Computed example of a mutant assay.
Amino acid sequence: MRQRVATQLTAGLAAAVLLTGCGGSDESSEDAAASSAASSSSASEETGAEVAADAADALEEAGAAHVTGTIGTGAEEQAIDLYLQGEDATGSITVAGQEVQLLTVGGVSYFQGPADFWLSSGVPQEAVDQLVGVWVVVPATEAAAFQQLTLTGLAQELRSPTDGAVEDEVTTEELDGEEVLVVTQADGSSLYVAADDPRYPLQIVNSGDDAGTLTFDGFGEEQEITAPADALDLSELGA
Rank of each mutant, 00 (worst) to 15 (best):
A65T: 12
A65G: 08
H66S: 14
V67W: 05
T68Q: 07
G69A: 04
T70W: 08
T70M: 10
T70R: 14
T70Y: 07
G72V: 08
G74K: 03
G74E: 01
A75S: 13
E76N: 13
E76V: 10
E76K: 15
E76D: 15
Q78T: 11
Q78G: 03
Q78H: 10
Q78R: 14
Q78N: 05
A79D: 12
I80T: 13
D81E: 14
D81T: 05
L82G: 11
L84S: 13
Q85A: 01
Q85G: 00
A89N: 08
T90P: 06
G91H: 06
V95G: 02
V95S: 02
A96M: 11
G97V: 13
E99H: 00
V100W: 00
Q101I: 06
T104C: 03
V105L: 02
V105S: 05
V108Q: 11
V108W: 00
V108I: 00
V108N: 04
S109R: 03
S109E: 04
S109C: 05
S109Q: 04
F111Y: 11
Q112H: 06
Q112V: 06
G113S: 12
G113R: 00
P114T: 10
D116N: 06
F117V: 08
S120C: 02
S121D: 06
S121G: 13
G122H: 09
G122S: 09
V123K: 03
V123Q: 03
Q125N: 05
V128N: 04
D129M: 11
D129T: 13
D129K: 12
Q130S: 12
V132L: 07
G133I: 08
G133M: 06
G133F: 07
G133C: 08
G133S: 09
W135N: 10
W135S: 09
W135H: 09
W135Q: 09
V136R: 10
V136Q: 11
V137N: 03
V138T: 05
V138H: 03
A140Q: 15
T141H: 12
T141L: 11
E142W: 01
A143H: 02
A143R: 00
A145Q: 08
F146W: 06
F146V: 01
Q147G: 12
Q147V: 03
Q147N: 10
Q148E: 03
L149E: 10
T150V: 07
L151D: 04
L151M: 09
L151K: 08
A155R: 04
Q156Y: 00
E157I: 13
L158Y: 06
L158M: 13
R159H: 09
S160C: 00
P161V: 13
P161S: 10
P161G: 12
T162K: 14
T162W: 12
D163F: 15
D163P: 03
G164F: 11
V166D: 04
V166F: 02
E167K: 11
E167F: 01
E167V: 15
E167W: 00
E167Q: 14
E167A: 15
D168A: 15
